[in-house]
Design a binder for these strands. Structure first.
Lengths: 99, 99
DNA sequence: CTCATATTTAGGAATATTCCTAAATAAGGA
DNA sequence: TCCTTATTTAGGAATATTCCTAAATATGAG
């Protein structure tokens, strides 16, 4: 799953899907690569379970799989033992952080 | 930086360094790979600024660079627009999470 | 069935990663 | 200086990633 996040194009795909679900073609149009290349990136994200796919007629709709993304984040957090306070935009003040 | 996190050995190195700083040799002893191979992994982590290194006599001491790790986490969070609540071990109740 | 559209799979070239052994470098002690 | 210890750099083989073009598949319209 970290492997899937390792390529900038795949992270950008996730950022686009964070806004709303999109078709394969619509996603592909955002990048300067061929459709088959983009399809390969979709496969990597799907294998990592970071996105789900659903067919609608001839088009395939890709969606961000939020729960798995959250698991990824949880794993990275516990790996580094970071509380999460540091991540938001404006960490006003500490909650019950007992270090 | 995501690239640096993509290899399991490098994530395990970070997990070890999260506990406390360690020498190159001490780190290498935790893995079934040669010293030069491990040294290569250290270089990747250093290039990604995820660890710092300091010489102490003949040994090199590696330390987790927490601030950069936090930035990584923040980046992943904003990429996926996740609040961070989902990550901790026991998310008792919501803070000022206003969705 | 045939055609057009949307998307994928197949095959292959260029490049990057990962691991090894052998040799080099750095530091300190006798 | 010479030796030992700690660690790195150098060079190379095996494997994986990334991208392409060409061909295949899937679906719906006519």
């Amino acid at each position: 799953m970290f492997q899937a996040l390792a390529h900038p194009v795949r992270r950008d795909i996730l950022a686009l899907l964070r806004e709303h679900a999109r078709s394969a073609g619509e996603l592909a149009d955002h990048f300067p690569y061929s459709k088959p290349t983009m399809s390969g990136h979709f496969n990597v994200l799907r294998d990592a379970d970071l996105v789900t796919v659903e067919r609608q007629g001839t088009t395939l709709i890709y969606r961000l799989n939020v729960s798995v993304a959250e698991d990824a984040l949880a794993g990275l957090m516990s790996l580094l033992r970071i509380d999460g306070e540091a991540a938001g935009a404006a960490p006003a003040r500490k909650k019950g952080a007992k270090p």
